[in-house]
Nucleic acid binder design. Structure first.
Lengths: 250, 250
DNA sequence: ACGACCGTGTCACTGTGTGGCACGGTTTGC
DNA sequence: GCAAACCGTGCCACACAGTGACACGGTCGT
C-alpha cells in the first residue's frame, strides 16, 4: 500500500516541520516534487492539513489530527483525574511533571506540565521510550505481577540509550524490588545522560498499573538527599490518582 | 488518491469505534471486507493502529496519532499558559472550562477541564463549531478588527444550529459591541438548546485574538444574575493569559 | 450438527498513482 | 540589471499498485 504509506509519512513530516512548502518537503523525504505536491493537495482536500492564509503555499496541520489524537485510548479518564495531582506536584516542586501510559514494551508520554526553572527538560507528547530506561517505566514494571514484568524484560534484548542504562535483567529485577518497597523509582541518566527522574505507578480498579506520574529534571538539580522527598510526593500523588480510578488498597 | 482517502477514513473510523474488528468496520464504512482488512493491516504496519493483546483481531489507535495531534499549531504555548488559569476557573466555579482556538470560520476545542457537577456538558477535544454559535467564537470575533469580523460573518450564510442561534449579521455585530464593552460573551442555547456558555478572548503579542477561554454549563444552572459574575472571572483569567503571551494593554 | 458469523488469503483485471519533464513567477547572487 | 536558481504548478504515457468477488478454515450459538 505504497501511496498510503507515503501519505502518512508526509503527514508526519508536515507535523514536524510545519509550516512547510512543497520543495522543502520533497527534499526532506527524498520524494519527487510532483508526488509530494499531490500528497499535500490530497491531505488538504481530506481536511488533515491546510495552507496558511498569509502563506498560501506552506502547509500545517488542521485540528483533524488533534481530534484523532485525543481519542487515543486511556487518555480521557486518566488525564482527568491526574491533571489536578500533576498541578499540585508541579507547584510543590517547581519541576516538570509527566503523565505516561504503558504501550507494548514502551511508556508513552500523554501529558505534561512544564516546570518553572529556566533550565528544564524538553519532551514531546506522544513520544515513547523503552520501559527499562525511564522512572515511569520502572514504576510500572514494579507494579505489575513479577512474572509479567519478567516476560516483558526478557522478550527482547534490552537497549542501552546511555552508558548508565541498566540492561541486565537480574539487576533490573533487584531494582524493581527496591521500587516496590519504596513506592517510587529513581533514574539518573538512564535515558539521557543529564536527566534524572522519579516516578510512581497509578493503578486501576484491577490493581494493575495503568499509568505513571513522574518528575523529570536535570541530574545536577537532583542530589540523592532529595530522592526520598520527591519520591514520596510523587508516590502520594500517584496513590491519590489510583484511588480516584477505583483502586482500593489490599 | 482513492486509497489514501480510504485509509484515512478507516483511521478516523477506528478512532471513533475502537476497539473494532474487520467485519464491523467494513459494514460501517460500506467497504468490501478484504479492502478493509488490507487497510487495517497497512495502518498497523505503519504504526498508527494496533490489535489488542487479548483481542488480537480488534484494532485501536496507537500513540502515533497522539503524537501527531499534539503537534497541532498553537497548542504548545497557549496550553501551557492557559492550563493554570483554567484550573483556577474550574476551582472557583466548579464548571467545565474550555480552551478553544480559531481555525478558518470555526472555533476548535483544544483543551478542557471537566466540572464537578454530576450533570455536565460533554464535548470532544478537536471538535469545532461555527464562530457565531459559541461564546468562545463571539469573544474572538469581538476581539478582532471590526472589518475582519464582518468579513468572516458575511463570507457564508450563517448556519442555525438551534432556534436560538442568531443568524442575522447586523444583530450579531450589535452583540459584538456589547461583548467588547463587557469583556466577555454570553450564549444560551445557541449551539445546543440546553447549554449556556461564557467566553473571553485571549490575545497574542499583536493584540489579535489567538484563543478563547470559556465556561460551559447547563442553561438551567446559569440564571442571568450569574452572567456578570462568571463573565468577569473568565475575562480576568483570559487577560492574565494574554499578558503571559506577551500582550500589553494599549 | 448445522448455519451464521468471524478473520484470513488468493488472484486476474483495471484504473490509479507515478515521476520525469516543462512552464511561468519570484527571489537570490553577482 | 540580468542570469541563474529557486519556488509552486501542471501535464501525460506507462506500469504497477490497489481493488473486490470469492473461497477457506475456525468458532460461536442454537
Amino acid at each position: 500500500m505504497r501511496s498510503v504509506s507515503v501519505a502518512l509519512a508526509v503527514l508526519e513530516a508536515v507535523a514536524e516541520q510545519q509550516p512547510v512548502g512543497v520543495s522543502e518537503l520533497s527534499r526532506a523525504m527524498q520524494l519527487p516534487k510532483s508526488t509530494t505536491q499531490r500528497m499535500l493537495l490530497t491531505l488538504g482536500q481530506l481536511g488533515w492539513i491546510r495552507a496558511g492564509a498569509e502563506e498560501p503555499t506552506r502547509w500545517s496541520l488542521t485540528s483533524k489530527a488533534l481530534s484523532i489524537g485525543s481519542r487515543h485510548r486511556g487518555d480521557e479518564e486518566i488525564r482527568r483525574v491526574a491533571l489536578p495531582a500533576m498541578h499540585t506536584l508541579s507547584a510543590a516542586t517547581g519541576e516538570t511533571v509527566h503523565l505516561s501510559v504503558p504501550e507494548e514494551r514502551r511508556v508513552v508520554l500523554i501529558e505534561k506540565i512544564e516546570g518553572v526553572h529556566p533550565v528544564r527538560t524538553h519532551t514531546t507528547i506522544g513520544n515513547g521510550a523503552p520501559l527499562h530506561t525511564t522512572a515511569s517505566g520502572k514504576a510500572i514494571l514494579a507494579a505489575m505481577p513479577e512474572a509479567q514484568a519478567r516476560a516483558l524484560l526478557v522478550a527482547v534484548p534490552l537497549e542501552a540509550l546511555t552508558e548508565h542504562t541498566q540492561t541486565d535483567v537480574a539487576a533490573l529485577q533487584e531494582e524493581l524490588v527496591r521500587v516496590r518497597r519504596d513506592g517510587y523509582a529513581v533514574t539518573v541518566g538512564t535515558r539521557h545522560p543529564e536527566i534524572a527522574a522519579v516516578g510512581a505507578a497509578v493503578l486501576g480498579t484491577s490493581g494493575l498499573p495503568v499509568a505513571s506520574l513522574s518528575l523529570s529534571l536535570p541530574a545536577h538539580r537532583f542530589p540523592q538527599p532529595l530522592w526520598s522527598e520527591f519520591g514520596e510526593q510523587v508516590a502520594r500523588a500517584a496513590t491519590e490518582c489510583s484511588r480516584q480510578l477505583g483502586w482500593r488498597p489490599a
